[in-house]
Design a binder for these strands. Structure first.
Lengths: 232, 232
DNA sequence: ATTGCTAATGGAACGCCGGTCCATATGGAC
DNA sequence: GTCCATATGGACCGGCGTTCCATTAGCAAT
């Protein structure tokens, strides 16, 4: 019988373990070695204990990684304390902050999920909702729009960032794009009419700008419906 | 030394293995048991062979799952043969087809990635691009817009669909949403002002509609910039 | 102080996995 | 029939997540 939450209501001993401590160490190892490199044995060694002890505070590896990813998400809006300026541009700032946080911890990108259950994922959705409520959108659409934005932020960030884990670290991002561009050029124009004439844009493609471009499309759609084109 | 592509230029023997055969069997096992349940041993047994033989046609498990996911993606637009009606609504149909395909094979959702290298992922982006080119958008924006839509489709589908794998199959989707709603209601309104007053919308939330709602926002943003509000 | 109990520890062990190795077989080319 | 690249499949390796359990640290009551 073990606790998922390793609360220490009683004092706690000297070099006491705790979930926070474990998750923190896990984040470091994940940054350094990636998800595949994180091992309970290795983590235990880093904390000067045995694997068994960790399971008192964390129920399994999935939960550990989820908690670690949630901590990364928390870092995203730690820097952006509150609700500045106009709602839509505040949404943009928030979204980019999340993207940047995940960019610094690529392993986390595929583990932030919605609908949220973990603390910081909840906080993110709440902040988005609060901002959406300020846009003048009718109240019955708040939830759907907030969720859509939340999904976009985490989902598209994951799409953009996660693939980097796979690719060999020895090959630079630019080289990879160049290789991809060349492969596209060699495709049959009959089967791939669009890709074969679009490789140029791929070469000078910047992930972060791409994320923002799509975000702007989404937020433009929001503005359109908030202030309809035909004001009848 | 082994081939990644197990071409059979020479005839091939009786019950010959092939990459297609293996990937097909993998899809079945993945549908039945999920990603964790797929094992080279099990797959080998299903094909009446040994694990070692599989590695002649597939270089490792990551590649196998990626190929399986790409096959699922292929099913998405197999049913929707070509480019019907108006461009934007054709984009919507295409997007929903992908969502539905991933919905039927949840394990695949987190494995369709962009920028694409696999055959059907490439096809998807090409189709999107071709449709975007028909919207009257200036050519220099085609790539960015197409990529944004592609990211939205795969990324948001993954966000919506992937979590279901984790949750116990014994608990229904509706029960899960009701549980989540209740948990949100118990949050502190001071910390989560938005969530605590929005639980009602969560209860009658439908994933597919949610996907479409966000998609419409995105496509509205596209229309806005394609036919600007202030035409001058 | 002594005792009893719970929270917590950590190392050994279990079962299984992805992946490799290699002895063997198949079937076309000559 | 001989040869050889193609292909097979079972044994095996190292390592993983997880469980088990003997042991300890600290608190409360005596």
């Amino acid at each position: 019988m073990q606790r998922t939450r390793g609360r220490a209501p009683t004092g706690g001993r000297a070099g006491a373990l705790s979930q926070e401590l474990i998750v923190g160490a896990a984040v470091s190892l994940l940054d350094e070695l990636g998800e595949r490199g994180l091992t309970f044995r290795l983590l235990a060694k880093a904390l000067n204990t045995g694997p068994g002890a960790l399971y008192w505070h964390v129920s399994n590896k999935d939960e550990l990684v989820a908690l670690a990813a949630d901590q990364v998400l928390g870092q995203a809006f730690a820097a952006h304390p509150s609700l500045e300026e106009e709602a839509v541009s505040a949404l943009r700032v928030l979204a980019v902050a999340v993207f940047d946080a995940l960019d610094r911890h690529p392993w986390a990108a595929s583990h932030v999920s919605a609908p949220p259950t973990l603390a910081n994922a909840l906080r993110l959705l709440d902040r988005i909702g609060t901002l959406v409520a300020r846009t003048g959108l009718p109240a019955e659409r708040h939830f759907a729009v907030s969720t859509a934005i939340s999904y976009y932020i985490t989902g598209v960030s994951a799409q953009i960032i996660a693939p980097r884990i796979t690719h060999d670290a020895t090959v630079s991002r630019d080289d990879f794009l160049a290789q991809t561009a060349q492969r596209w050029e060699e495709l049959d124009p009959a089967d791939y009419p669009f890709l074969t004439r679009t490789t140029q844009h791929l070469r000078d493609h910047a992930d972060r700008d791409q994320f923002i471009a799509g975000l702007d499309m989404l937020l433009d759609g929001l503005s359109t419906t908030a202030h309809p084109r035909t004001p009848a």
